[in-house]
Design a protein around this nucleic acid. Structure first.
Lengths: 170, 170
DNA sequence: AGCTTACCTTCCACTGTTGACATGTCGAGT
DNA sequence: ACTCGACATGTCAACAGTGGAAGGTAAGCT
């Protein structure tokens, strides 16, 4: 259950409302930990109930601004430093590869070239995102850039792999 | 809901019991689509109910052997060829990177060197797995090798990235 | 003044996933 | 004869995640 930690992490940077956080999840966090509106509001209510965040201001349209409490910060640090065991990741992209044998070779190759294309597009999107941000030297920039670099390398790796794989068939 | 398709895919190769499938999930499929015993048995019952698989034999300890029906094969092919939109993948490994700024630089670096190590180990395990299998030219071997190559490249990429990232801090 | 768009939250039904508990059988070795 | 480990299945409570309905307010444009 890392949604909780994603929220604590975002609130550690600055106070925000559910709506603000939702926007962040739709943009910068979408590729790492997607979350829906219903999930976010539910989790905020729970976190507020357990004292890890509090309402610091109420705005115009019933807007509630949340901020991290000391307790929440402790939990966030604990998650970052103590809990090593990373959960196994599921990949339906790769799962399909296992069963491509039930298709005709040209169909299988088609799937892999589709992956090549998808990775190329992913790479380009991240490139553009990187160019559109003016990075400075604060924490957010440093670690944001590191995460983005991961995305670039991942897509490049997958593209090369898919091209190689398509060549392996038949 | 790809567990369903994972089961159909495995049964497309040969008939198997829930127990057999569980073993496969614990070994070869563990890195791609982990599943628990309860999930597998529940899903098998549902698939049998909807006619995509059938019981072909009953063995010693109440063992039931399932096989794919034509309907199941159709569904499997459909999933492989028609359903492109791949679900977004969640990564708690990367999520943490976003929030490493709340830690002291040396703690953040520690996290990244931990990832380096994890990736190195992952690479080695797959290397050993690759060596222990004697590959031939059937479908299972061809696509199994392709999937394994993905794992090798992924771990190599992540290791290099984590080393680079550790160097970026401070 | 009226309309539209963006802002903002809550609730609910459904599916997927986890972990534990319950139950029992067969085969091999002592 | 006994026991232990592998074989084998089923069920349940709890939590995580999806998608959508419902309801409402403020701000900006014409």
């Amino acid at each position: 259950m890392s949604l909780k930690h994603a929220l604590l992490g975002l609130l550690s940077e600055r106070p925000a409302s559910g709506y603000d956080l939702l926007k962040t999840f739709e943009t910068s966090l979408a590729n790492v930990w997607p979350a829906t509106q219903s999930q976010i509001y539910t989790e905020l209510t729970k976190l507020a109930g357990s004292g890890q965040i509090t309402v610091t201001a109420e705005g115009p349209r019933g807007r509630k601004e949340y901020a991290l409490t000391d307790e929440g910060m402790t939990e966030l640090r604990h998650w970052l430093t103590e809990t090593r065991p990373q959960r196994n990741t599921r990949s339906d992209v790769l799962l399909r590869v296992f069963f491509l044998g039930v298709l005709r070779p040209e169909q299988a190759r088609e799937y892999l070239t589709g992956l090549t294309e998808m990775s190329r597009e992913g790479y380009e999107q991240l490139r553009q995102l990187a160019d559109s941000i003016d990075w400075d030297d604060d924490n957010l920039s440093v670690y944001g850039r590191i995460a983005l670099e991961y995305g670039l390398r991942f897509n490049a790796m997958r593209q090369e792999w898919a091209e190689w794989a398509a060549g392996q068939i038949k």
